[in-house]
Amino acid sequence: MNANQYCQDKAAASGSSFYYSFLFLPEPRRQAITALYAFCREVDDVVDECADAAIARTKLAWWRAEIANLYAGKPQHPVTQALAPAVRSYGLNEEHFQEIIDGMEMDLDQNRYADFKALQLYCYRVASVVGLLSASIFGYSDRKTLKYAHDLGMAFQLTNIIRDIGEDARRDRIYLPQDELARFGVTEIDIIHGHETKTVRQLLEFQIDRARQFYDRAFAELPRIDRRAQRPGLMMAAIYRTLLDEIQADGCEKVLSRRISLTPLRKLWLAWKTWVFG
Score class of each variant (00 low, 15 high):
P26D: 06
E27T: 11
E27V: 09
E27Q: 14
Q31E: 04
I33C: 00
T34F: 02
L36M: 13
Y37T: 03
A38Q: 01
C40E: 03
C40H: 05
R41P: 02
E42G: 01
V43H: 11
V46M: 05
V46I: 07
V47Y: 06
V47C: 06
D48A: 08
D48E: 09
D48T: 09
E49F: 02
E49C: 04
E49V: 00
E49G: 00
C50W: 00
A51C: 00
A51S: 15
D52L: 07
A53K: 15
A54H: 14
A54G: 14
A56W: 08
K59D: 13
K59P: 01
A61Y: 12
W62S: 12
W63V: 10
W63A: 12
R64V: 04
A65M: 07
A65H: 10
E66L: 12
N69T: 06
L70R: 09
Y71G: 03
G73F: 02
K74A: 12
P75F: 07
Q76R: 14
Q76I: 09
Q76W: 00
H77W: 02
P78Y: 01
V79I: 14
Q81S: 04
A82P: 06
L83Y: 01
A84W: 06
P85C: 03
V87F: 02
V87Y: 03
R88K: 15
Y90Q: 04
G91M: 05
L92T: 04
E95T: 15
H96L: 12
H96I: 05
F97T: 10
F97V: 13
Q98H: 15
Q98K: 11
E99N: 12
E99R: 14
E99V: 10
I101Q: 13
I101D: 14
I101F: 06
G103S: 11
M104I: 09
E105R: 09
D107K: 13
D107N: 14
R112A: 10
A114K: 06
A114V: 10
D115G: 02
D115V: 08
F116Q: 12
F116A: 09
F116M: 11
A118R: 11
L119R: 02
L119F: 03
L119P: 10
Q120F: 12
L121A: 11
L121N: 07
C123P: 05
C123W: 02
R125E: 08
V126P: 01
A127P: 07
S128A: 14
V129W: 05
L132P: 10
L132I: 13
L133F: 09
S134R: 02
A135C: 11
A135N: 04
A135H: 03
A135Y: 03
